[in-house]
Design a binder for these strands. Structure first.
Lengths: 108, 108
DNA sequence: ATTATTGTTCGTAGTTTTGCGAACAACAAA
DNA sequence: TTTGTTGTTCGCAAAACTACGAACAATAAT
């Protein structure tokens, strides 16, 4: 079973989706996407959760490739990973377009 | 912190993403998107996992609103939930477009 | 040296997810 | 009534996720 018979890596798409599968991580991504970059503390300030938890969410987003971080002692600067962001965009785009122009379903 | 200052429901987007956050569920969605509808058995046949597991994945996709199912005794017909599919498409689209036209990041 | 700042990592607790076989429910057929 | 077919639900086990405070690491300032 090959996903959509398109150039979409099923595993990779699922990995992106999984990383996005938590409201806090969506918030973080939205925030980062609205900026060019910012520090950990800025992100933490936007959220009502412990810094350890923020750090963990950032790690997952980084592991999924959606963001990147670099040390600017003593702070850490985070930003969207542009390359993978666009890849994810293409994947999701292609994925949903599969159904374009199709009609009927069961029920209404 | 309002996601992207757009008409995107953060919770809903995360819910969609979470449902898509598993390779098997991506496969199922792709399969359903390539058809108008099909039966549980057809989906099960495409996958190397136990029917109980398939049923569970289908339940999650249904709970997330991405698919729907109806009984056609003794079978169950599944299909994409078109309305929510398009909603999800719009959400993901809007989400990723946030970063459009932006440049610099930290690191490369 | 001591203190302060910034984040990460560790250890823990509770919840959720994933996957399976077995049991079950609903119905049709023999 | 018994047997088959089709899927769902139950109960279980292992793994992963979520969140937190505390401890820690790296560096700068006093």
């Amino acid at each position: 079973m090959n996903c959509c018979e398109k150039n979409i890596d099923t595993e990779q798409l699922a990995r992106f989706a999984k990383a996005m599968g938590h409201p806090t991580r969506i918030e973080i991504l939205c925030y980062l996407a609205s900026l060019d970059s910012c520090f950990f503390g800025d992100i933490h300030n936007e959220l009502p959760i412990a810094k350890a938890t923020v750090s963990q969410h950032l790690k997952e987003l980084k592991d999924a490739g959606l963001i990147q971080g670099e040390i600017e002692t003593p702070k850490v600067r985070y930003c969207i990973n542009k390359e993978n962001w666009e890849k994810a965009q293409q994947y999701f785009n292609g994925f949903f377009e599969t159904k374009k122009e199709k009609v009927g379903c069961c029920a209404s």
